[in-house]
Design a protein around this nucleic acid. Sequence first.
DNA 1: TCAATTAGTATACTTTTGGTAACCTACAAA
DNA 2: TTTGTAGGTTACCAAAAGTATACTAATTGA
Lengths: 119, 119
Amino acid sequence: MGSHVETDTKGRKTAINACLEPCAIERGMRIIGGKWTGSIIFHLKDGPVRFNDLARMLGGASKKMIDQRLKELEARQMVVRKVINDRPVAVTYELTDFGRSALKILDDLRVWSDEHDIK
Amino acid sequence: MGSHVETDTKGRKTAINACLEPCAIERGMRIIGGKWTGSIIFHLKDGPVRFNDLARMLGGASKKMIDQRLKELEARQMVVRKVINDRPVAVTYELTDFGRSALKILDDLRVWSDEHDIK
DNA sequence: TCAATTAGTATACTTTTGGTAACCTACAAA
DNA sequence: TTTGTAGGTTACCAAAAGTATACTAATTGA
């Protein structure tokens, strides 16, 4: 992302290294920046959590949301879904190593939000 | 966010410390996680940039988007708008100390995206 | 004169997202 | 039998987000 703007002899300007495609920051944001995504990852940090327990912890999010986000995270291999019991169905969600690799950023963000009193 | 779920003697479950309101991670995300917001902040890291130069660097974003995001950031005191010239109009945008305080998180995110080859 | 620059605004439009609520199978307790 | 648990799915609607295009006014350079 060393982009800057250059002016030629005729005064015309052109961007050098423009972000025509979403650059790394954008791409990253689209993964951990979805609504509730960061919170979900963070709530899994201490180990496997069952679906409904997660839903209870994230009181503000609907099951649909949580389900959607978990599927995205599973597709990205950040989370693993494990059926721990048939009859009655029991499922847990757990972070992969890749999933855990995002925790530092999320925790820094949490600290930053707290420090700067973001409402 | 030390939320967890407890089961009472009758098997009923209740979430302790549930995130009824968006917790710190959510709140932070809503500020630096908007589309293009992170990229804009990052492009301002080396000093003041003019509006159209920013638009050129962020080739994928429309002026309306950039304008909107800059206004949000200005309202949050993360960016300062400075008119450096009337006739012809010239304006620059610059990070405040608060704005700069987000750079570390954004750079970590950039590195993380690159390392994990996020598409 | 024509084209391009400055920093936006205005308008219209499409797409995506988010949220509610109902419904599903299967099991268990009162 | 009714209620509750589990882990979702489905349909629908409203609102937000994003895109596209045109337009402003003043200035400069060819």
